[in-house]
Design a protein around this nucleic acid. Structure first.
Length: 490
RNA sequence: CGGGGUGUGGCCCAGUCCGGUUAAGGCACCUGCUUUGGGAGCAGGGGAUCGUGAGUUCGAAUCUCGCCACCCCGACCA
């Protein structure tokens, strides 16, 4: 492990990359654009999964699994959907290899060509709706509330660890409903769950909003999004929930008999968050010393480092610490006693800072004499001396305080970086500065694209909790009824 | 797919312009001793088809041509 990382000020994206690698979260693999998620990074993802899964189940959803491969023909059934994904699909054309007759390793066996090519799923709407056709006949079969945890592949031109990889892990919910209202209510419920997860567990404030027609999911009538602001002033789309109307039902001919005996197409929603949330988590809170993890998602919440001379002293300190470890576990706090003799305390301190462990305890001979220990917070980098008999309860409260503190810090940052502007000159200046820019827009795709071409800023969302306010579009001067959020985005 | 750049032990890289014994240094790794309250010190040790293929030459990491891979900037995107 090298010393230190590039500072955010020096080079934000280099800081991010080094942080991901040095904090042992992930690394690039032999396949371009595909990463290896290392145990420490995967442990964070597992914590995210566990919490989201719980929230999905509490709202009546069940998990299922659909295939990785999708017949090519399924993609031609929904026109706008294929437009959205065609350019980034991995295609399976053969099913066998053979030894190269020229002796140079293995080659594709041309005799093993598939009759119909298979697409490695970039998302599962098509395979799922082709399946739902068999599951749904009557209103009694509805709603279907299914989620799957899976990997998907999108052949991106440029990739970055967690933020955009060719293969990524995610969950995708796919629901089927008897009415438009019910499907829309589901769509909104799920974006609210994402928002709650982001704010309460990731300690990351988000803006909930609608996407413009231009930014909408391929095949959706309405896309809701949660948008977070990163420390470099760029926005990150962190989760989406789509109201699909009857588009996929029509494409896959999924009809049901209503109570009244009529035949109608089914209404649909789909919603997902991905390992991109890992990127969001990293960028939202971390500093130049390394990761800062919210206690609720930290794989290790408390690390304990002994300071000692000689084996006998270590033994004495270990006795004390083993008691503490038990007490922490009894309270459901995940704790690691780091008694490795191969590294010195200073090394361990630096390592836990780099890995974002929320609280670190050090106990040495001085503490043993006084019945104390040293408690260090990762979020503020401050240290205090606490009595040993008190420390478990003290830290139980401290973890809550840290969770709250890093949320408030991120919230302040976000709120201080929403700029209201009324002219295009102000707009350009604000975008250059970074952050969300709240401005009037005439509601047309043409204007949105023109703004993007001129400033590289995209329309992030039309916030749901938006005060209605008459105004004029910053570019065209045409009338507008509400402000929308623009930003440069990941 | 356009424009630019880089390939040298696990990692960062010197050497390439101007060809010449054994390819230098740092980190990491291994062994031993001393250490342990903020990334330890000293001594010793192991590890390289110089991206790849051909060519020029008495001689190539170095020169020429081809190929490959990766990175950065654009267009595309959760």
């Amino acid at each position: 492990m090298g010393k230190g990382i590039t500072s955010r000020e020096e080079n934000y994206s280099q800081w991010y990359n080094e942080l991901v690698v040095k904090a042992d979260l992930a690394e690039n693999s032999a396949v371009r654009g595909s990463m290896v998620i290392k145990p420490y990074g995967y442990a964070i993802w597992e914590k995210m999964q566990a919490q989201l899964d719980k929230m999905f189940k509490e709202t009546g959803h069940e998990n299922a699994y659909f295939p990785l491969f999708i017949p090519k023909s399924f993609f031609s059934k929904e026109a706008s959907h294929v437009d959205g994904f065609a350019k980034e699909c991995a295609v399976v054309t053969h099913y066998r290899l053979k030894n190269d007759p020229n002796g140079k390793g293995v080659i594709v066996d041309e005799d093993a060509k598939l009759e119909e090519e298979l697409i490695v799923r970039p998302t599962s709407e098509t395979i799922i709706w082709s399946t739902y056709k068999n599951w749904i006949q009557s209103y009694r079969d509805l709603p279907i509330l299914v989620n799957q945890w899976a990997n998907v592949v999108r052949w991106e031109m440029r990739t970055r660890l967690f933020l955009r990889t060719a293969e990524f892990l995610w969950q995708e919910g796919h629901t089927a409903h008897a009415t438009s209202d019910e499907a829309l209510a589901e769509t909104k419920q799920m974006i609210n769950i994402y928002s709650e997860f982001a704010e309460k567990h990731m300690a990351m404030p988000v803006v909930i909003g609608r996407k413009s027609e231009n930014e909408r999911f391929a095949g959706a009538l309405e896309t809701f999004t949660i948008e977070a602001l990163m420390q470099d002033g760029k926005a990150l789309q962190s989760g989406t929930s789509h109201f699909l109307g009857q588009n996929f039902a029509k494409a896959f001919d999924v009809k049901f008999a209503t109570k009244e005996g009529k035949e109608e197409y089914v209404w649909a929603s789909s919603w997902g968050v991905s390992t991109r949330l890992m990127g969001a988590l990293i960028m939202a809170h971390s500093d130049d010393k390394g990761l800062v993890l919210p206690p609720k998602l930290a794989p290790i919440q408390v690390a304990i480092v002994p300071i000692y001379k000689g084996e006998q002293q270590l033994e004495e300190i270990s006795k004390k610490i083993n008691v503490l470890v038990k007490d922490f576990r009894a309270k459901g706090i995940s704790v690691k006693y780091d008694n490795r003799d191969t590294h010195k305390p200073g090394f361990k301190f630096a390592e836990y800072e780099l890995k974002g462990v929320p609280v670190r305890i050090a106990i040495g001979p001085r503490d043993m004499a006084n019945g104390t220990c040293e408690v260090a917070r990762r979020d503020t980098l401050t240290k205090e001396t606490v009595m040993q008999y008190d420390v478990v309860e003290y830290i139980e409260k401290l973890l809550e305080e840290i969770q709250e503190n890093i949320y408030n810090k991120a919230l302040n940052f976000r709120n201080n970086n929403i700029q209201e502007v009324n002219t295009f000159d102000e707009f350009k200046e604000a975008i250059e500065k970074g952050g969300f820019v709240s401005a009037h827009w005439d509601g047309t795709k043409e204007t949105e694209i023109k703004i993007k071409d001129l400033t590289k800023a995209t329309l992030r969302c039309i916030p749901l909790e938006n005060k209605k306010e008459e105004g004029e579009c910053i570019l065209t001067g045409k009338p507008s009824k509400e402000r929308v959020l623009f930003a440069k985005a990941y």
